[in-house]
Design a protein around this nucleic acid. Structure first.
Lengths: 210, 210
DNA sequence: GTCTATATCTAGATAGAC
DNA sequence: GTCTATCTAGATATAGAC
């Protein structure tokens, strides 16, 4: 692996602007999300992704040196977009944290492709040899730390009962979010994902309130 | 599709016994579960599954006429084993229903391969064109009906508050179960799946109790 | 930066020998 | 019931022209 491969090529950032190459790169990443959503990682094909974008397979491999490099780039880009948008700030309270999670669910309800992609990749990554296994281990660790931290601060501030188990409660919250996404992906019109999460978190907050 | 293909061949049931062919068939199904767990459906290979069993790809296709037929057979067999074991009897109460669900989670903690398979297939099946899409739609419908029925009877008997929303609560319970399985598959020693489910259901029952 | 061409491998399915 | 052989199709990756 060389240093600059699979990341934004130097030339396209020359003189501060984003050249056409970046737009092409972005369109490849967007197309990959849709393919991973439908096929998962293993069964996705570089040639089919390239065809959707309007380039050849060889052209795609100029931007991403391998299939696995493309996967990693897709996941990195998701982090840039979402984690910084929803998890950058430290929540002031448990209630504040819960509101952000509902916002995230509402946001996700507008992009079924991305939801399906994470469903499939998170499930596939359960196998230790999967190229995204380490990524999802870290991702859950980060989410659990973020939420359990907010709960612990809620206990300290007197917002929540002192016997609240932050770690295990955070695990349960993550499970509800992922499980709802799994059901929702099967029928995106069947129910309101964000409303279901809100109902759960409201009840949880009432039970945990000091 | 012909009538007897992909199901147990007639010859092997002759005179009431199970002939060697059935044992081979069962071993193919077991191997397929492990492969679906690791690769999903699309990326699994009949040749690799056959190799694990010790037959050739041609030999496997004697028992299952196509890749899709094998998938359907695996899912049908899972239903025979699990749905009848855990969902056959109508629960007498919500508490009774919840106990059965915890039993199922504890049972699943003993078979990570099958858990991963359902994680991956349920996620993949979110795409409308997936061969298991209809199966998982029906499966969720059945689980939701079963659980929401138990909740409704709990309301009728005075066990639960009258304003309990059985349908939406059942959806939440299913989400917790699936979400816990997703996290657990990434690290099967990280936490106790059945204990987490029990803690959630115990709290839920306290909140819903009349 | 993108193309064509190619090397190498593996896929699912069918046909027919035993 | 299982094997070998074969067909067609598609995969990833590399090399080199433009």
């Amino acid at each position: 692996m060389e240093a600059n491969q699979g990341r934004r090529p130097r030339t396209s950032r020359a003189r501060g602007g984003y050249a056409v190459g970046d737009e092409r790169r972005t369109r490849i990443l967007d197309a990959a999300v849709e393919h991973y959503a439908q096929w998962g990682f293993h069964a996705s094909s570089l040639a089919r992704i390239a065809k959707d974008v309007g380039v050849t397979q060889g052209g795609l491999l100029h931007h991403f040196r391998s299939k696995e490099d493309l996967l990693v780039s897709v996941l990195e880009r998701s982090d840039e977009q979402d984690v910084e948008r929803f998890f950058a700030a430290e929540p002031a309270s448990a209630a504040d944290c819960f509101r952000t999670l509902v916002d995230l669910a509402a946001h996700n309800a507008g992009r079924p492709g991305r939801v399906r992609m994470f469903n499939v990749l998170a499930a596939e990554a359960g196998s230790p040899g999967h190229p995204a296994h380490a990524y999802f281990e870290r991702r859950y660790r980060d989410v659990l730390d973020h939420v359990s931290g907010a709960l612990r601060r809620g206990v300290d501030s007197g917002e929540l009962r002192p016997d609240t188990d932050g770690e295990q409660t955070a695990r349960e919250i993550a499970a509800v979010m992922d499980g709802l996404q799994l059901q929702w992906a099967l029928d995106t019109t069947g129910f309101d994902m964000a409303e279901r999460l809100r109902a759960y978190l409201d009840r949880l907050l009432r039970v945990l309130a000091a």
